[in-house]
Simulated scan of single mutants.
Amino acid sequence: MTTPLPHQNEAFKPTHDIPDQVAQHAIELLMDWQTQAAPNTWDRILDWRREHPDHERAWQKIEVTYKHFSALSPASTELARHTLNSSQQTRRRTVKMLTLLCVGVGGGLLLSQQPVHTTQQAYHQTDTGEQLTLELTNGSLVQLNSRTIIQLEHNLEDIQIRLLQGEIFIRTAGLDTSTPRLPLFITTQQGQLTPVGTEFNVRQLTTTTEVSVLAGQVLLLSGPITQPHVIPTGHVITFSKDQLLEQRPIHPSDAAWTQGMLIAEGMPLRQFINELSVHHLGMIRLDPVLDSLRVSGSYPIDDTHNVLESLSYSLPIQLKHISRYWISLHPSKHFKK
């Protein structure tokens, strides 16, 4: 006699959280099925789903969540095949990543108990010299740097941030928060990210994205990769649409703007002026002969005029105020090539 599968409404009853081990096993079965690892995979899945109501609830919810993840990352099928053909350690690590995406850390499945009815969308922008902090519906905080534009979209399934220009710092909500722990996705021109309990900085550059992780981990889901790439605590990566360009240890300067500072250690003067210009209302022109100079120190970004004046005392440069909004930097009489 064949035991029928539980009714779908029964599977979605919010009686208790689904154990992480059950959710992880559901993901493993889903990957086996997607890659056709064995001819009887679907029979094994049906048998497992009939064993316990938690199994059926886990299967239904993770199947929906994984479909959502697949839409976000077209390489998901290739990821499954790669995982099955990899070592046991690699397989366990990748399955754990996917479980974190669907389940979170020790707290039951993230998928909403109700179908999605509405999607709310808004644009947020900061002007030169401005910063803005937003609290998301899942309790996370997003801080926008100067000259930053984001598109924020949220519904009952997840929260999406599209970084259109500039730089943002994100602090995800703690596990003890009472707000719903909806998954968070950040999209730039080069790829898509999701945090795993973390504090991190995302910067949209001209042709690349730079991600700095101060705490926790961030997963690069799509972009120049064929499987999710972990960015651990204390690391910075820069990537284009086609490749991972750089990975280095984090530096205090990487998110110093959140503390109102610009930190430089032997930074080329032109790079320093470019960084300062993000917070300066007007134009700063640098004479090319000064490109060999370097800057060190900590500078407050809320008074760029004072920063420029201080440079004229520490470096062989002089300032010329062409107009209220145009400052030009030239070599002083003490400058030596």
Rank of each mutant, 00 (worst) to 15 (best):
T3F: 13
P4L: 01
P4R: 09
F12E: 15
I18L: 02
D20H: 13
H25M: 07
Q34W: 02
Q36M: 04
A38C: 10
P39K: 05
W42T: 06
D43M: 07
L46C: 03
E51W: 06
H52I: 02
P53S: 09
W59P: 04
K61N: 07
I62P: 09
H68Q: 15
A71L: 15
A71D: 14
S73W: 06
A80N: 00
R81Y: 13
N85F: 01
S86W: 00
R92M: 14
T99N: 10
T99L: 03
L100E: 11
L101M: 03
L101G: 07
G106L: 04
L110I: 12
L110G: 05
L110V: 04
L111N: 09
T119G: 06
Y123M: 11
L136G: 08
T137R: 07
N138K: 09
L141S: 10
V142N: 07
V142G: 00
N145A: 06
L152W: 12
I159G: 04
I159D: 03
L163Y: 14
L164Q: 14
L164P: 09
Q165W: 02
F169N: 06
T172H: 01
A173D: 00
G174F: 01
D176L: 01
S178N: 13
T179I: 12
R181F: 06
R181H: 10
F185C: 01
T187C: 05
T187Q: 12
Q189P: 08
Q189V: 14
Q192E: 11
V196W: 04
E199A: 14
F200M: 09
V202Q: 00
T206H: 04
T208Y: 14
V211Y: 00
A215N: 08
Q217Y: 07
Q217R: 03
V218L: 06
V218H: 03
H229W: 06
G234N: 10
L245P: 11
W257C: 08
T258R: 01
M267A: 10
P268Y: 14
N274G: 11
E275P: 13
H280Q: 07
H280P: 01
G282V: 04
L286S: 02
L286W: 03
S292V: 07
L293N: 07
P300E: 11
V307Q: 06
L315R: 09
S323R: 08
K333E: 03
K333S: 15
H334F: 12
F335Y: 08
F335T: 04
K336L: 11
